[in-house]
Design a protein around this nucleic acid. Structure first.
Length: 867
RNA sequence: GCCUGGGUGGCGGAACUGGUAGACGCAAGGGACUUAAAAUCCCUCGGAGAUAAUCUCUGUACGAGUUCAAUUCUCGUCCCAGGUACCA
């Protein structure tokens, strides 16, 4: 018999067995409790990398565990197949995005199969299939009908080099993630989904997701950004028109000494028209619009603005105050106009000092005396109201409501809520995506495509343009359309495609009935399987994908298609796998295999022999080339050792700096278990495992080992079920294995043999979710029938978890001084007496008066003697 | 700036509601087996200082506090990572 585990022969053998027995196929079974586990589906970029391996291993362990626990488990896999990299790769390699994508899918599918992941491959989907995106188009039309989708002109991130709109997440520090070109704002007609309709509901439910990490719900809350405040109306001097502002501090309205409008605000132009300021204002607006307004840009620009020439009336003081336009006011937030209270807001303060505007303190903390002329910074805290007429002396917190009510009675204000969340712009000027199913008619305007005409297929024979723009606007046969309403023949099809986040917002429902032809999903199947019980993926999607998915479920819910709102009951955000980057002055980023150590011990580039610079440890990404291909590990150690190693390295939520040094240890452990089992099979063939109570065992060695085994079963079950801490689950099994190695199998009594068989059988079952091929093979060699998959998860005996004797820790003044062993049932008095009588303890307490003796009997029994 | 996390040996990481700090593993050192190597097995391994086994002091970023007892709780400081950012 082989001394070592042979993954090269064992792993393919079991993969074949699972395939032929359709081991992972699942069906709806009303009598069985379902469990839906899903890992975020991959973008088919070409190769599986170690981050995927980690993600899918975590999921696969839980899935296999839940199956053994008797759940009807659905575990599907598919491809987030639309997206820009396919187009870029197609241009670079002179191929078609579809060809490139399908090729990647098939090689990645093979890699996943080699890892032994237990997917129901019959449910595989790819979002670029017309059978999939047909239903996305169908939903789009439904949303259009219900006014959940609309079109407006707005500013978008535009990369000139790639000739497209970029999603916010594709902009890294002002630059295009692919070509590093600075991104510009461009005004375009775009389709939007009205996610803001659900802002409040999405926010409220953040607190009703106990299975989600706080980190993620907090990020979503911040992203939604609810502010409670007031809308106040300032009458424009000399006109019968108001400027509406949003403020969270209505209590400071008496201190509003000027007004600022966003440069894009429609009133800026009309107010300055005809005044002395007109010229200056126009020049300022033009200058600002040509500037970057993104994060990096804004830091560089000082607050500046221009007087519009107009005044408005402060509704509280009835004073005339000047109206400015300023670069720090955002059109997209609130009303695009602010009342400026320089004494209470640092930005307003800076602006006021710069342009010599009046500063009137209106909120003052206890024991301070503010003077607008000498203040050095704004006071943003709470305090007592001053300089505010009848409201003086109020607490600023109370004044918020009181003043708003007062202004409301005067018809000058009301309470309101503002959100930071904006509607979701989904139009992309890209080719490789879902076509937006509308037609533009010169007479009828925007006309939805009739449902019967779906899907609007993406023309497959399109050639991509050299410079990277979408070829769709150049394809006459695609664009040309007859208006479905008036039958005009010169109508035009929309040439934009949808953001790929739209596909990923509902794919998990499609898995429930992946080939369903009458709708997005079979309602029965979704009723049984959905929502997802456990979702696993990278934290980088904390806001975007996870928020969009929550939004989509609300859309479907309000359309009456589903009866739940939250797509993912529990969420595990696994940490990122990181590695240092390496750059060559000549060749830029290098793959790890493109750097080697030279004779002087320095890293050099394998192409040009120049010194390689080792950069920061960051998340593995293809563009930074700091990726590790799992193939090498897979070939050398096999899938099971790779899986074990990924899990053992760190708990799943933690970021992991990739380092292969420990893999030998995992390999060693697997072989330790292998040899132990083979040895056991040879030496105790036919011995049945012991299953009684620990107390019925005669020898203390057998008893201790049996108790340890029961503790291990409990520990592993708890770790997998409750916390996903596979690293400690594995440690526990390692400890049990170490204990078994301490036993000499050749000279033991029958009783102990039975206990050892019990241990080994259970070790195989406990490890089977983690190292499935390995455990199947050992299970077979132990003479068992069938597959480990059909075995129930091992149970431990409650009566066999505690040892008869316990170690008692004795402290003097909190410092460990002695350890005693006593019977587990000794009472406190007995323990205290024994502790005080101990020789080592006597050394410390002799001739001293005891102040107190504390006996703790929790998990650990402990005596603390205070002198 | 604000919001989250986090800081434990040479390294990855344990320590559940305060109760033996460093489980398990890696690396390192020593030993056994072997003609030799690999593989395997055993021992040591936070720091400092004494010793015959062993013992004492010290130690969880830093400084205070609460407590019989603090890696764990509270306050303050520093550092790191992620998110977000002129949000009125």
């Amino acid at each position: 018999m082989e001394e070592r585990y042979q993954p090269q022969s064992v792993e393919p053998k079991w993969q074949k067995y699972w395939r032929e027995n359709r081991s992972f196929k699942v069906k709806q079974e009303a009598s069985k409790e379902k469990y839906y586990l899903l890992e975020m589906f991959p973008y088919p970029s070409g190769k599986i990398h170690i981050g995927h391996v980690r993600n899918y291993t975590i999921g696969d362990v839980v899935v296999r565990y839940k199956r053994m626990k008797g759940f009807n488990v659905i575990h599907p896999m598919g491809w987030d197949a639309f997206g820009m990299p396919a187009e870029n790769a197609a241009i670079d390699n002179n191929t078609h995005p579809a060809a490139w994508t399908y090729e990647n899918i098939s090689s990645m599918r093979e890699q996943l199969k080699k890892m032994g992941f237990s997917y129901d491959w019959d449910r595989e989907i790819a979002t670029c299939h017309p059978e999939y995106y047909k239903w996305e188009q169908w939903l789009f039309l439904k949303m259009l009908e219900k006014k959940m989708a609309y079109r407006k002109e707005s500013y978008v991130n535009w990369c000139e080099k790639c000739q497209t709109v970029l999603a916010n997440e594709q902009v890294e520090q002002d630059r295009c993630w692919r070509c590093s070109q600075t991104v510009h704002q461009k005004k375009l007609w775009q389709w939007f989904f009205k996610i803001t309709d659900f802002a409040e509901d999405l926010l409220v439910y953040c607190d009703k997701l106990p299975g989600w990490p706080d980190k993620v719900t907090t990020m979503q809350k911040n992203w939604i950004g609810k502010s409670v405040g007031s809308e106040l109306k300032f009458k424009i001097h000399g006109k019968d028109e108001d400027i509406v502002v949003f403020t969270t501090r209505p209590d400071t309205v008496f201190g509003a000494t000027f007004m600022c409008l966003a440069p894009e605000h429609p009133l800026v132009e009309s107010l300055s028209k005809g005044s002395d300021q007109e010229e200056l204002v126009l020049r300022f607006v033009k200058k600002i619009s040509s500037q970057e307004r993104s994060a990096e840009g804004l830091e560089k620009y000082e607050k500046e603005g221009v007087f519009t020439g107009a005044f408005c009336i402060n509704p509280a003081t009835s004073e005339k105050i000047p109206v400015y336009t300023a670069n720090f006011v955002l059109m997209e937030y609130g009303t695009g106009a602010i009342m400026s209270v320089p004494a209470g807001d640092q930005r307003d303060f800076d602006f006021a000092r710069k342009y010599n505007l009046e500063i009137i303190p209106v909120v003052q903390p206890e024991g301070e005396e503010f003077d607008g002329r000498t203040m050095e910074e704004a006071y943003t805290g709470e305090g007592k109201i001053i300089n505010s007429g009848e409201f003086n002396g109020l607490d600023s917190k109370d004044a918020m409501d009181i003043m708003t009510d007062w202004l409301e009675k005067k018809g000058r204000g009301k309470k309101t809520i503002s959100f930071r969340l904006r509607d979701w712009g989904i139009s992309r000027q890209r080719y490789w995506g879902t076509p937006i199913p509308v037609i533009h008619c010169p007479d009828c305007g925007v006309v939805p495509v009739p449902q019967a005409d779906l899907p609007i297929k993406l023309p497959e024979e399109a050639n991509l343009l050299e410079k990277g723009g979408s070829p769709l606007p150049t394809l006459d046969y695609f664009i040309k359309a007859t208006c479905p309403q008036c039958k005009r023949e010169d109508a035009k099809r929309d040439t934009d495609t949808m953001d790929t986040f739209v596909e990923s917002s509902w794919y998990y429902l499609r898995y429930c009935s992946p080939r369903y032809e009458k709708g997005m999903f079979d309602p029965d199947a979704v009723k049984y399987w959905a929502p997802v019980d456990q979702y696993i993926g990278g934290v980088e999607h904390a806001v975007l994908h996870l928020l969009y998915s929550r939004y989509f479920m609300r859309v479907l819910n309000s359309l009456g298609m589903i009866d739940f709102k939250e797509p993912f009951t529990r969420l595990l955000t696994q940490g990122m796998v990181c590695k240092e980057t390496m750059t060559c002055p000549e060749h830029g980023y290098l793959f790890p295999e493109q750097a080697r150590k030279n004779e002087q011990g320095r890293l050099e580039c394998t192409i040009c022999n120049r010194d390689v610079e080792v950069g920061r440890v960051i998340k593995m990404s293809k563009s930074k080339k700091n990726v590790v291909d799992p193939n090498e590990l897979l070939e050398q150690y096999g899938a099971d050792v790779t899986r074990l190693f990924c899990l053992f390295a760190a708990p799943p939520e933690r970021d992991l700096e990739w380092n292969e040094d420990g893999v030998e240890g995992s390999n060693r452990f697997v072989n330790r278990v292998w040899r132990l089992t083979i040895d056991c099979i040879e030496k105790m063939n036919g011995v049945k495992p012991y299953r009684g109570a620990a107390s019925d065992l005669l020898s203390s060695q057998a008893k201790d080992l049996y108790i340890k085994a029961n503790q291990t079963i409990k520990k592993v079950s708890d770790d997998i079920d409750q916390s996903f801490h596979f690293n400690t689950a594995i440690s526990a099994v390692m400890e049990l294995v170490n204990n078994l190695y301490a036993v000499d199998l050749d000279s033991i009594a029958d009783e102990q043999k039975k206990v050892i068989v019990f241990c080994i059988e259970n070790i195989i079952l406990l490890l089977s979710p983690i190292t499935p091929h390995f455990c199947e093979e050992l299970f077979l060699r132990m003479g068992k029938k069938g597959s480990v998959l059909e075995q129930p998860w091992p149970l431990y005996r409650d009566d066999s978890l505690k040892t008869d004797e316990i170690i008692i820790v004795v402290q003097v003044n909190g410092k460990l001084r002695a350890k005693l062993t006593m019977g587990a049932d000794s009472d406190e008095t007995l323990i205290e007496e024994a502790a005080l009588a101990d020789e080592k303890i006597q050394k410390y307490i002799k001739d001293k008066t005891l102040k107190k003796v504390i006996v703790i009997r929790k998990k650990q029994t402990l005596v603390n003697i205070v002198i």
